[in-house]
Write a protein that binds this DNA or RNA. Structure first.
Length: 572
RNA sequence: GCGCCCGUAGCUCAGCGGAUAGAGCAGGGGACUUCUAAUCCCAAGGCCGCAGGUUCGAAUCCUGCCGGGCGCACCA
């Protein structure tokens, strides 16, 4: 049911015969036919033959009669493939009966750990957490749907020196008062107040230092206060996740503190492996190939000169836990691009230590920044980072307003539901629809527009289809004969058959903009179909077929959006 | 200083060794007694930052330069 794959599988043996070894036929969509294969061009040099000859010979060997209406060599040596309508009909019929829309469950399931979101206790979530959370959650949804065992890890910032001052501030406020403030979600003012005292008050500073020691020493009372901070913060984060509609739960929190008792072991074992070197009093590993400002080898500092452990030690302990205890073979770190070098070093050290060895591998899914209209990092008027909930609430409010403007008769509940699906969807889609490595500009007008490559456009296409079915008063018959009466229907069929290939690609690359681009293409292809092919007014046979195509489109849009973490609505 | 990333239509972005570089938005022209026009159709829009090189073929690979961002030992 994966058209691209089918054609590729048919051409591959022919290429192998001609080339004398396995060759990827490089099948892709073509502006001149349905698909094209570019592999003959690349082979020309290796075989020392004109590419057109190679292509000709491949076509003589390839068995394509039952799937292609035309297969011809074109230009310097492209193979242009036009799929036979009969084949399209067969495949679409098969799709219609498949809950998974042609996407198979993976044949090679593995345990994948996705490390994402990672807010800091007693600190507000800001836009910087948005991308990690949205991208990570999309990865979780996709890999889970494909049948992998996915472990979400919310690597909470719940440990370290700031907790001295935070706990002391908590003590000053009184537990009840502090819990109240934190549960209101006013994390920033709590943090700022603590910070303010720390900066201004020597006595407070001293108390804070002692408190850090007590915390790390396991003092019972201090641990209790610390737990309170963590729990209140977690409770708040969960409300944000709920609004953002991500799948993270309370069970997924696994903060830095969880690795505290393994840090010494990490250092010991690195030492035992002979990887450790003392430098300026710190215990370091110098992975080859990393050079610092001064041109000297750059260390990964696993134990600071004061005896404390830094985050590299935590990251190594966590990695070890993931490959060792959890048995993960794919580790994903959804963390901003500035930390690229850090992760490269951690992975290098883990590899050298034998904690990360094939088939296990780690990937840093880095991402760029969210920019304001001025093209600079998004900041509030006061120059502070923008509070995430504020952004989300604004999105929902704007979307609700738009829904009501379009249909003033909407009841409040429906308007709220649409506003939420569309507003949150718009934010997530804007994030996932561009290459995650690049920065992007947050532009309300654009992302909430019903035109263009936006969530609302896709949601609208979906709701239009649902509207057709409401009027039809019946669901599509999945066994209805498929009739491709015109070019718009044919184009839609081809597009529908492309879902599996895109999903397979994104499984590897985790570049969700390819999935977003596919869904947008599907929606525009559907819109053209919708415009030209009346469904309900069509003669019975055509009507049944068109209902089936519409239903498949709706299911594909819904599933695709669901994988991106975006809801669909029945009407909007 | 070294390293990494980015410069593609007026704007936002795809494409990252193959045919005449694609979308969307905005701007121009058209289509509503509608299966939701929050839509669709048509036309227009480009020395792919600059200069060399490799190649039958470069937006794509290599080198240098220009412009922007980020990182480079005890904060995460």
């Amino acid at each position: 049911m994966d058209l691209e794959r089918l054609l590729s599988d048919r051409l591959a043996p022919a290429f192998a015969t001609v080339a004398g070894g396995p060759v990827d036929p490089l099948v892709r969509r073509s502006p001149r036919a349905d698909f094209q294969s570019d592999a003959a061009l690349a082979l020309a040099r290796r075989l020392g033959r004109p590419p057109r000859d190679i292509a000709d010979e491949v076509l003589r060997h390839a068995v394509l009669d039952d799937v292609c209406a035309a297969a011809e060599v074109s230009g310097p040596g492209f193979v242009n493939l036009t799929v036979a309508d009969g084949a399209l009909v067969r495949m679409v019929a098969a799709l219609a009966g498949d809950d998974r829309l042609g996407v198979p469950v993976t044949g090679t399931p593995e345990t994948v750990v996705v490390d994402y979101s990672a807010p800091n206790v007693a600190k507000e979530m800001h836009v910087g957490h948005l991308r990690s959370t949205v991208i990570g959650d999309a990865a979780v949804r996709l890999l889970d749907w494909l049948g992998h065992r996915v472990v979400r890890v919310n690597h909470l910032g719940d440990w370290g020196t700031p907790f001295g001052m935070l706990i002391e501030h908590l003590v000053d406020l009184g537990e009840a008062e502090a819990a109240e403030e934190l549960s209101m979600g006013d994390l920033d003012s709590f943090y700022r107040a603590a910070r303010g005292k720390f900066d201004a008050d020597e006595a407070f500073r001293e108390r804070s230092r002692r408190r850090v020691v007590a915390l790390q020493g396991g003092d019972e009372r201090t641990r209790q206060l610390w737990r309170l901070l963590v729990e209140q913060s977690e409770r708040y984060f969960l409300t944000v996740y709920d609004l953002l509609d991500v799948t993270l739960t309370g069970d997924d929190f696994r903060g830095e503190s969880a690795y505290d008792d393994r840090l010494a072991g990490v250092v010991e074992d690195l030492d035992g492996l002979g990887l450790l070197r003392a430098s300026d009093g710190a215990a370091c590993v110098f992975p080859p190939g990393f050079v610092g400002r001064d041109g000297e080898p750059l260390p990964l500092i696993v134990r600071k000169s004061d005896g404390g452990f830094g985050y590299p030690a935590t990251d190594l302990a966590a990695l070890r836990h993931r490959t060792g205890d959890l048995g993960a073979t794919r580790l994903l770190y959804v963390v901003g691009l500035p930390q690229r070098q850090h992760f490269a070093m951690v992975f290098a050290v883990a590899g050298a230590a034998g904690w990360l060895r094939p088939p296990a591998r780690a990937e840093h899914l880095g991402f760029g920044s969210i920019l304001g209209a001025d093209g600079r990092m998004l900041r509030s008027r006061a120059g502070e980072s923008v509070k995430l909930v504020g952004l989300l609430e604004e999105a929902v409010a704007r979307a609700t307003e738009l829904a009501l403007a379009k249909d003033p008769g909407l009841d409040a509940g429906t308007a709220a539901e649409i506003g939420r699906a569309v507003g949150i969807g718009a934010i997530k889609y804007a994030d996932l629809a561009t290459d995650r490595g690049k920065d992007y500009v947050l532009d309300w007008e654009r992302m909430l527009s019903l035109d263009g490559n936006t969530a609302p456009y896709l949601q609208y296409a979906y709701s239009r289809i649902r509207s057709v079915f409401r009027r039809a008063g019946a669901a599509a018959r999945p066994d209805a004969p498929v009739v491709l009466a015109g070019p718009a229907e044919r184009a839609l069929a081809v597009e529908l058959l492309g879902f599996a290939a895109v999903v397979a690609q994104v499984e590897r690359s985790l570049e969700f903009h390819h999935l977003a681009g596919y869904l947008h293409r599907l929606a525009t292809t559907f819109s053209a179909f919708y415009e030209r092919c009346p469904v309900l007014r069509a003669p019975d046979e055509v009507r049944e077929s068109r209902l089936l195509l519409a239903d498949l489109t709706a299911r594909t849009l819904r599933q695709g959006l669901h994988l991106l973490g975006i809801r669909t609505v029945e009407r909007m």
